Amino acid sequence: MPNAASWQSDAEVNADKAAELEQQLAERNQEIERLKKQLSSSKVNTAPSIKTHWQTGEFTAYYPPTDVSEHAMQGNGITAQGDNLHKSQTCEGYQIVAAPPEIPFNTKLEIEVNGNVIRAIVRDRGGAIKGSKFDIALSDKSSATNFGRQSGKWRIIN
């Protein structure tokens, strides 16, 4: 029959083993965190910039309505991604555009129309926006009317 001294000895040995295993676990967790940071920083630093080839497209313009009688766009001036076009037609320094659903939101584009290059970001959709048709957000009806319907080219730049 074991005595109290041997139980105490076994308990001390087990406590030492537990402490050693906890230390190893803590070291491994630190190593995992270090590797995660290294992996995420290498993804950020080494991810190639995507730049697709130029494609032809058709470009129109839209604007936030100034009153309820105007049906310039659905959403009363709010894009599908929640941008308020009454305040600004840009996001992150890029012109807001409505693009076909095949192009994901927040994709950055270069659009060239009549020799002018527009750096744009996809933040909206539209019922007639399909294929290679894009709708560029402008500040008012006059600007949108002056822009009209134009042919040009576009490419993804991010």
Rank of each mutant, 00 (worst) to 15 (best):
residue 76 N to M: 03
residue 82 G to F: 09
residue 130 K to W: 05
residue 64 P to N: 13
residue 140 D to W: 04
residue 151 S to D: 04
residue 74 Q to T: 12
residue 110 E to M: 08
residue 125 R to W: 08
residue 52 T to L: 07
residue 135 D to V: 09
residue 143 S to M: 06
residue 45 N to F: 02
residue 27 E to L: 03
residue 91 C to M: 07
residue 122 V to S: 04
residue 69 S to D: 04
residue 132 S to E: 14
residue 53 H to Q: 06
residue 74 Q to I: 06
residue 44 V to P: 00
residue 133 K to N: 12
residue 128 A to E: 03
residue 16 D to V: 05
residue 56 T to M: 10
residue 59 F to M: 11
residue 139 S to N: 11
residue 18 A to Q: 10
residue 4 A to E: 10
residue 76 N to I: 04
residue 1 M to R: 09
residue 104 P to F: 10
residue 129 I to H: 10
residue 83 D to M: 02
residue 158 N to D: 13
residue 17 K to G: 05
residue 128 A to I: 06
residue 113 V to W: 11
residue 139 S to V: 02
residue 65 P to Q: 06
residue 96 I to V: 15
residue 88 S to K: 02
residue 145 T to S: 09
residue 111 I to F: 08
residue 114 N to C: 00
residue 116 N to K: 15
residue 138 L to E: 02
residue 18 A to E: 03
residue 37 K to Q: 09
residue 88 S to W: 05
residue 64 P to A: 15
residue 79 T to D: 03
residue 47 A to S: 14
residue 29 N to Y: 14
residue 16 D to E: 13
residue 140 D to Y: 00
residue 19 A to Q: 09
residue 90 T to F: 11
residue 22 E to K: 12
residue 81 Q to S: 14
residue 55 Q to I: 03
residue 12 E to W: 07
residue 79 T to A: 01
residue 158 N to F: 09
residue 139 S to P: 01
